[in-house]
């Protein structure tokens, strides 16, 4: 049953993806990308990745959508029709996709408990993490304890990106322009 729900959600994901490509109203594209994130998060729950689903829902469906909307208010919300016929990109995409699908035949089947990835390192973490760190959630244990420096690096990346966004926007009129009209909302500035 879980597998059937999984397949249904994946088909919906593909449909949403194709619709995002075809629509020209950018506001609709942003709405659909919100739906895409929600569907992706439910797929993650089905595939046992509850922590990832948590993050994806908060970050993908929440923050990304709001950021995209903020940018849409500052720019144009309609895509122009391209002048060139996109034949070459289409061929590139189809060929690459065919090669990648050919490559998937060498992967172990989905959910195979004997796949190499599940036999080497993961069992040790699953067996040891609880009494070494005291956290029943192995993902938290690995993220905060075994790979604490990795997480510190991640924080550095976010900090750098924040500085970058502020530097990019502080030279422009975006942060200042709205103040005379309304002081309660600054799209894009909250990044």
């Amino acid at each position: 049953m879980i597998l059937a729900i999984d397949i249904a959600l994946l088909v919906m994901l593909a449909v949403v993806g194709i619709a995002i490509i075809r629509l020209r109203n950018l506001f609709a594209v942003v709405m659909l990308s919100g739906i895409y994130s929600l569907l992706m998060a439910s797929t993650f729950v089905l595939l046992d990745a509850v922590d990832v689903a948590f993050t994806e829902a908060a970050v993908g469906a929440g923050i990304s959508t709001v950021l995209l909307l903020g940018v849409l208010t500052l720019t144009k919300s309609r895509e122009k029709i391209p002048v060139t016929t996109p034949l070459l990109p289409l061929v590139t995409v189809v060929v690459t996709g065919a090669l990648l699908i050919y490559g998937t035949w060498d992967l172990p089947a989905f959910g195979d408990p004997n796949a190499p990835a599940h036999r080497h390192v993961a069992p040790e973490y699953l067996a040891e993490a609880t009494h070494e760190t005291g956290a029943p959630n192995v993902v938290t244990a690995v993220l905060a304890s075994y790979r604490g420096y990795d997480t510190l690096g991640e924080v550095t990346v976010i900090f750098t990106a924040g500085i970058g966004v502020l530097l990019l926007l502080s030279g422009s009129g975006v942060l200042r322009r709205r103040e005379p009209e309304e002081n309660d909302d600054k799209p894009g500035g909250a990044a």
Binding site: D51, Y125, I158, A161, G164, V165, S172, A191
Partner: peptide, 30 residues
């Protein structure tokens, strides 16, 4: 149990991905 290690990797990747998106959108505004 499912393998926890990909989950850890992807948690990091999601957050970094949103930082990339924010930076790209700031560039678009400029």
């Amino acid at each position: 149990y499912s393998n926890p290690l990909p989950h850890v990797l992807i948690l990091t990747a999601i957050v970094v991905g949103v930082a990339t998106t924010a930076l790209g959108l700031a560039l678009v505004v400029r």
